[in-house]
Design a protein around this nucleic acid. Structure first.
Lengths: 99, 99
DNA sequence: CTGAATGTTCGTCATTCTACGAAATACGAA
DNA sequence: TTCGTATTTCGTAGAATGACGAACATTCAG
């Protein structure tokens, strides 16, 4: 009986990170935040060609993937990179891409 | 009038590459091929928990993203990494992830 | 209490994705 | 021409995605 369980947990995790990055809007947000620039949802709404509810959905995707986190600074929410998971993503992609 | 055209072509390109990587099966295939191991569709069918038609669809996705290419070795087809685009993906992710 | 500001959630629609099985295609050997 | 092999394509079903606008929730200033 051949073994069909060859996909590793690491590959699954990378697929999750890659999926979260698989949309230009989310790439834009990640690159902005990775530059060390936290930002507010409202500001992003001014910079991106989508309505705020769609942006909210994208930010939710990134949060659920663990790549960003939001800190409440009433009345706004400040988004920034989740450093722990960002490091993990860096390591995984570095290894995968042989950088 | 605020400028909403802030998403760069580079970010769009990275999103396309990331999207192609956004499934565990495709991550498995890419990692296998990135190890320098070309392979045949039939062999992959033995190693993965999906039917050959679904695998064919995934390979098509990777080809359309430009990450792999297939060479005819009748009666089989040999898949391997598209080195040119692989290098580009490496460079893009290296810059994006600040590696 | 009211209204404004900020952001989220919901419902909807259209599209895409991912699985499958059946059918089709291409090729070479016999 | 037929058969076997390898792979792709097609049609289908259900789930997921990504866009929108409307409604909702929370907070705060007046």
């Amino acid at each position: 009986m051949s073994n069909k369980n060859n996909i590793t947990e690491e590959q699954k995790k990378m697929a999750r990170y890659a999926k979260a990055m698989g949309h230009p809007v989310r790439m834009y947000v990640l690159e902005l935040l990775a530059k060390g620039n936290c930002c507010y949802s409202g500001d992003l709404t001014e910079e991106l060609p989508i309505v705020k509810s769609t942006l909210s959905q994208h930010l939710k995707e990134l949060k659920e993937a663990g790549l960003i986190q939001g800190e409440i600074e009433l009345p706004k929410i400040k988004y920034c990179i989740n450093q722990e998971n960002w490091k993990e993503a860096q390591q995984l992609f570095q290894k995968f891409l042989k950088l």
